[in-house]
Simulated assay, not measured.
Amino acid sequence: MLLAGCTGGDGGGPTGSTTLPETSEVRVPDVAERLELQLSIPWSAVFLPDGTAIISERDTARLKAVPAGGGGRETINLGEVPGVSAAGEGGLLGLALSPGFASDRYLYMYFTAQEDNRIARAGVQETGDGGLSLDRPEVIFTGIPKANTHNGGRIRFGPDGFLYVGTGDSQRRNQPQDPDALGGKILRLTADGGPAPGNPFGNAVYSLGHRNVQGLAWDSAGRLWASEFGPDVNDELNLIVSGGNYGWPAVTGAPRRPEFQDAKVVWPSTSESSPSGLEIVGSTAYLGALRGQRLWTVPLAGEEAGTPVGHFTRQYGRIRDVIRTPEGGFWLLTNNENPDSVLVLPPLP
Rank of each mutant, 00 (worst) to 15 (best):
residue 325 T to Q: 09
residue 147 A to R: 11
residue 85 S to Q: 11
residue 204 A to F: 06
residue 245 N to V: 03
residue 296 W to Y: 14
residue 131 G to R: 11
residue 229 F to C: 05
residue 110 Y to A: 01
residue 1 M to L: 15
residue 238 N to M: 05
residue 293 Q to I: 03
residue 229 F to N: 07
residue 85 S to V: 07
residue 156 R to H: 09
residue 258 P to T: 04
residue 234 N to H: 10
residue 151 N to F: 05
residue 200 P to G: 03
residue 280 I to F: 02
residue 29 P to K: 08
residue 293 Q to D: 08
residue 220 S to A: 14
residue 66 V to N: 00
residue 164 Y to L: 05
residue 241 V to C: 14
residue 140 I to M: 08
residue 340 D to Y: 01
residue 103 S to W: 14
residue 214 Q to V: 05
residue 327 E to G: 13
residue 342 V to R: 01
residue 118 R to S: 13
residue 190 T to L: 08
residue 8 G to Y: 06
residue 81 V to C: 11
residue 223 R to E: 05
residue 14 P to V: 02
residue 108 Y to W: 10
residue 43 W to Q: 09
residue 212 N to D: 10
residue 260 F to H: 00
residue 310 G to T: 02
residue 19 T to A: 13
residue 248 W to P: 00
residue 13 G to I: 09
residue 181 A to D: 13
residue 234 N to C: 14
residue 267 W to A: 01
residue 87 A to K: 15
residue 253 G to C: 03
residue 254 A to V: 04
residue 207 S to A: 10
residue 347 P to T: 05
residue 278 L to M: 03
residue 348 L to P: 00
residue 108 Y to Q: 09
residue 180 D to S: 15
residue 122 A to V: 04
residue 117 N to D: 10
residue 250 A to K: 07
residue 98 S to Y: 02
residue 179 P to A: 15
residue 105 R to Y: 04
residue 279 E to P: 00
residue 33 E to C: 11
residue 346 P to Q: 05
residue 77 N to K: 07
residue 7 T to S: 15
residue 212 N to Q: 02
residue 209 G to A: 05
residue 240 I to V: 14
residue 72 G to F: 10
residue 62 R to C: 00
residue 12 G to D: 05
residue 76 I to R: 08
residue 249 P to C: 09
residue 295 L to Q: 00
residue 178 D to W: 05
residue 140 I to V: 12
residue 74 E to D: 13
residue 203 N to E: 08
residue 182 L to H: 01
residue 21 P to C: 11
residue 195 P to I: 11
residue 315 Q to S: 13
residue 317 G to D: 01
residue 294 R to Q: 14
residue 297 T to P: 05
residue 44 S to M: 05
residue 157 F to V: 06
residue 283 S to V: 06
residue 76 I to P: 00
residue 230 G to Y: 03
residue 169 D to M: 05
residue 288 G to L: 00
residue 23 T to K: 14
residue 12 G to H: 07
residue 331 W to M: 13
residue 248 W to S: 02
residue 348 L to A: 10
residue 260 F to R: 00
residue 202 G to T: 08
residue 143 G to A: 07
residue 4 A to T: 13
residue 225 W to D: 01
residue 220 S to P: 03
residue 270 T to K: 07
residue 87 A to H: 12
residue 189 L to I: 04
residue 160 D to K: 14
residue 104 D to E: 12
residue 325 T to V: 07
residue 230 G to C: 02
residue 259 E to M: 08
residue 159 P to L: 11
residue 250 A to I: 12
residue 192 D to E: 15
residue 108 Y to F: 06
residue 234 N to G: 10
residue 64 K to F: 07
residue 9 G to Q: 02
residue 272 E to I: 10
residue 10 D to V: 12
residue 228 E to N: 03
residue 66 V to M: 08
residue 121 R to I: 02
residue 335 N to L: 09
residue 98 S to M: 09
residue 295 L to E: 00
residue 35 L to M: 11
residue 316 Y to F: 12
residue 172 R to G: 13
residue 174 N to W: 13
residue 275 P to T: 12
residue 190 T to Y: 02
residue 211 R to Y: 08
residue 281 V to L: 14
residue 343 L to R: 00
residue 75 T to K: 05
residue 234 N to L: 13
residue 61 A to N: 03
residue 225 W to M: 07
residue 33 E to K: 15
residue 56 S to L: 06
residue 217 A to F: 10
residue 125 Q to I: 03
residue 30 D to T: 15
residue 302 G to P: 06
residue 131 G to P: 04
residue 151 N to I: 04
residue 24 S to W: 11
residue 283 S to Q: 12
residue 38 Q to K: 15
residue 39 L to K: 10
residue 346 P to A: 08
